[in-house]
């Protein structure tokens, strides 16, 4: 079995192990085991359904970080059937490998795709800086978005980051300014922007490409002001309360939908996007096209007005007399 299982998927893994045993037995004893195998496979289905029907916050966080989960470039290439051209560099400092972008053909229409990119092997994970952009990543994203605006092309961003990189050079080159600038400019871009959280949505690093007319969230992702681990270490003064922190932060797609911060939850194949990336991309495409069509119908001025009013209305406080 090459499949990776998370700790809460242990019952599913056990059944896979059983299947293997039965198959081996069938081979060595030369008996027909297809019936038993079919029975066990059905069991996998029901067990998975049962486990996935009720996942907690921390389990969603684990799924969002699943090493076999599809990343930005996979989605873009699936959506455009390969008709995508990556564009590099911020025109100021360099090219950030943790942030990718370029034009793609989405069902006949040109779209500017932007997103954080993680690697799939030890080497490429490092090359992509684990999906943590430096300031030049955010500036590259903004450059490409402005390019899209100039030629009136809609923008789609894919969010998947454990945070903006907290390194020495990142601070020197103005990580805070780069993110702040993106917020400000994205609020004013005249073209439609759809943002999709496909994995981790951590803090300012996520928001730096996360302002738009729609924010969609895949089922097994999270969005929060801080990662559960860091929250645990600051508020509980220990790394051991990440599960509790995840619950307290209320960071799942369901919460975000309930609180009106995201517009829609994109369902994932049973067992998460990692179990069937191609199907996951198909579902993403369906949602993207639907929402893109909706926002493209609106007049630019009205769309901008709505965008700004939406963000201006977020927050909960009491007003005393």
């Amino acid at each position: 079995m090459s499949k990776l299982f998370l700790d809460f998927e242990k019952p599913i893994e056990d059944i896979y192990v059983q299947i293997e045993k039965v198959q081996k037995l069938g081979e060595t004893q030369r008996v027909d085991v297809s019936e038993q195998v079919a029975l066990l496979e059905a069991q996998i289905e029901t067990t998975t359904q049962k486990i996935y029907a009720d996942l907690n916050g921390w389990q969603r966080v684990q799924l969002s970080r699943h090493p076999e989960r599809p990343y930005t470039l996979f989605y873009i290439n699936e959506l455009c059937k390969g008709d995508f051209l990556e564009l590099y560099g911020d025109r100021c400092h360099g090219d950030d490998k943790a942030m990718v972008g370029g034009f793609g053909n989405l069902d006949g229409q040109t779209v500017m795709f932007i997103g954080q990119q993680k690697g799939t092997t030890a080497k490429t994970r490092q090359y992509r800086n684990f999906g943590m952009p430096n300031p030049e990543g955010y500036r590259k994203a903004l450059r490409l978005m402005k390019l899209a605006e100039k030629f009136n092309k809609p923008i789609v961003t894919f969010i998947d980051t454990p945070g903006a990189f907290p390194g020495i050079e990142a601070e020197e080159r103005g990580q805070a300014e780069a993110i702040a600038r993106n917020l400000f400019e994205m609020l004013r871009l005249k073209v439609p922007i759809i943002c999709v959280i496909i994995g981790e949505g951590a803090s300012g690093g996520a928001l730096g490409i996360g302002i738009g007319d729609r924010l969609l969230m895949m089922e097994n992702t999270w969005f929060s002001v801080i990662s559960p681990e860091s929250c645990s270490s600051i508020l509980w003064r220990s790394w051991d309360f990440k599960e509790t922190a995840a619950e307290q932060l209320q960071l799942t797609a369901e919460h975000m939908k309930k609180y009106g911060i995201v517009d829609a939850i994109i369902p994932e194949p049973l067992g998460g996007a990692n179990r069937n990336p191609t199907l996951a991309a198909e579902i993403v495409k369906k949602y993207l096209l639907e929402h893109l069509q909706q926002v493209q119908k609106e007049k630019p001025q009205a769309r901008l007005q709505k965008r700004i009013e939406h963000y201006a209305s977020i927050g909960h406080f009491k007003t005393s007399s």
């Binding site: 928001l207 302002i211 002001v225 960071l251 963000y311 977020i314």
Partner: peptide, 12 residues
């Protein structure tokens, strides 16, 4: 949580 994060967007 997310509400405080979104104050970044709100103020911007």
């Amino acid at each position: 949580s997310a509400f405080s994060l979104m104050q970044m967007a709100k103020t911007a």
